[in-house]
Design a protein around this nucleic acid. Sequence first.
DNA 1: TGAACATTTGGCAAATTAGCCAAATGATCA
DNA 2: TGATCATTTGGCTAATTTGCCAAATGTTCA
Lengths: 116, 116
Amino acid sequence: MQNKHAFRSKIFKALGHPSRILLVDALLQGARCVCELRELVNADVSTVSKHLSVLREAGVVDCEKRGANVYYSLRMECVRGFLACVDRFNARRAEEHACLLCKGVESQERESKFGE
Amino acid sequence: MQNKHAFRSKIFKALGHPSRILLVDALLQGARCVCELRELVNADVSTVSKHLSVLREAGVVDCEKRGANVYYSLRMECVRGFLACVDRFNARRAEEHACLLCKGVESQERESKFGE
DNA sequence: TGAACATTTGGCAAATTAGCCAAATGATCA
DNA sequence: TGATCATTTGGCTAATTTGCCAAATGTTCA
């Protein structure tokens, strides 16, 4: 029952890296081989391969070998909707932030202090 | 444009820790003060406080001071639906795993090898 | 004001993760 | 078979994250 949270957090942890989110983002549009993904993320192939295996072990993506290439694809479809929500959320936050700025609220304290 | 992925991954990273998922799970049912949450997660209050501030900085939760207490609450509502999906996903995976077991597929190789 | 409680912050050691290189593995094709 | 391409694995250091303790801050209430 405590394992539930370990499972859950494994998935979030897998997605909790800019390069890995970038990879998943690319896979939203369909399967891609490692060499294609490698160009996207600007890193050593071995690094990309390791990121992909983190995603695969978490169950977020799947892979399939075709000839000499390995194609990765999105497995956990609900990531798509959640990402869209996260983006809307961040956009809203950015707006609120801009709004506070133009009202001249002190910039550093704004979001770290408790309202009163 | 590259920042998009940094924003996204910050949220996932915040959720990518068993204790923090546990905290968020508790907040699904409503606001809780740190002292209540502290009992849930078995750790030093300072540790819990730091976990909560990671969640707050990512925008996942909000906090509000009431008297001597600080109450945390869920801010990013779409986490609720995604968690439900993640749980269904994990349950399905567990089933498939059990199913392969009873069919006698070699246990180690099963999910780490490519199908062919 | 001072004692007791709730929470956060600073700082540090231990654990984990990231990213590179080199080497291994597997596939293709001449 | 040997050359070449695609991918993964091992190993190592650097960077980041965790979690505890101690101390600081803020609140309540006598």
